[in-house]
Amino acid sequence: MPVRVSVVVCVYTEDRWEDILAAVSSVRAQSRPALETLLVVDHNPVLLDRLTREYQEVTGVRVLPNAGPRGLSAGRNTGITASRGEVVAFLDDDAVAESDWLSRFAAAYDDPRVMAVGGRTEPVWASGRRPDWFPDEFDWVVGCSYRGLPPGLVRVRNILGGNASFRRTAFDLAGGFATGIGRDGDRRPLGGEETELCIRLSRASPDAILLVDDRAVIHHKVPEARERFAYFRTRTYAEGLSKALVARSVGAGKGLESERRYATRVLPAGVARGLRDQVLARRGGARRAGAIVAGVLTAAGGYVVGSVRARRDGTTFSVVRIDAPAQANREAAA
């Protein structure tokens, strides 16, 4: 029997109203229909009321408030708990999915060992094209897939949260997303919560398979403010802080396993490519090489600061257990 897929879209601001509507429309236009779409509103009563009115007569779309503390992790946990599908997929609120997105995800779950499947996220630049200084290797800064990820359908350590899916039983095994990691309403753009969850899942179930299928494509909007070097610098620093938290939670060995290859192979090749482009008089080559070096240094600085703070403050994380409410929902939907 084919798996049923619930889609969770976490939202928090009316500034993205049109983006939210577009995201939901892309889910409703899937060639393989979703069981349901859950819009989880993060502590914004005005937006909650507006979305409730917008979708009150739309079958298959539910609007609900974040039942936990402010932040993306708690919002996702709220959606997981309320979901009824055997698979829970996550879509960013400023992204649209291609029509075969869910069918690509669902096909991978024919193998019962597969516990998570991610996809490819393409940037949609507000200015109309990629800034010539912005290296492909750092597209994760704007929430997109980046140069260095393996192509095709491949096994990975972790998937990226804005274009992701998990088998429902994965959360029974490992719990939900940890609060205390990732975005929580603070202006600093933290991340890493999906990495921590994936590592925790692999420890709870060593036979679990986590995949990325680059045919499961979404298109992610990049506003002009995020095309600027100031945001690039802020986001790379915040990533260093996040990696320090992840390493504290799951250990530096697993927490930085993929990052070591990225830093020692992918990024040096990117610097060389940028310098070569400069020699060949291709626009932006030296700036791309410089941005890679700057990104590495600011991320490393964030990691050092984050590690010191975590040890000093005794940082802890709360992992939500997700069991009874979701089980009741699944039984009701059966």
Rank of each mutant, 00 (worst) to 15 (best):
A178K: 05
W133C: 06
R104Q: 10
S242P: 07
S145N: 01
F105K: 02
A300L: 15
P135E: 03
A108V: 11
E259S: 14
T315M: 04
Y262A: 06
R233D: 15
E331Y: 07
L72K: 12
D213C: 06
A289R: 02
K221S: 15
L201F: 07
L275A: 08
R321H: 07
A89Q: 02
R309I: 11
S202I: 10
K243C: 11
G185I: 11
E57V: 12
S127M: 07
S242D: 03
R120Q: 10
G301L: 01
A334R: 14
N329Y: 03
S249I: 08
R155C: 11
D110H: 13
E196D: 09
E36P: 04
G162I: 10
Q278L: 14
A225I: 08
T264K: 12
I20S: 02
G295F: 06
D207R: 10
Y237Q: 12
K254S: 15
A225S: 15
S242Q: 09
F138Q: 05
V212N: 04
D313P: 03
G60C: 07
P223A: 06
L173I: 15
V41G: 06
R309Q: 15
N77P: 09
A107K: 09
V40Q: 08
P33I: 05
R200S: 09
V24S: 01
G284L: 05
A82S: 05
A291Y: 09
L64Y: 09
V141C: 07
V279S: 14
V271F: 10
L280A: 13
V87R: 00
Q30G: 01
I181H: 00
A272S: 12
A174P: 11
V96W: 00
V319N: 12
V142I: 14
V41L: 08
Y303V: 07
V58T: 13
E227S: 01
C144K: 01
G71C: 02
I20E: 00
P131D: 00
L64Q: 05
Y262N: 12
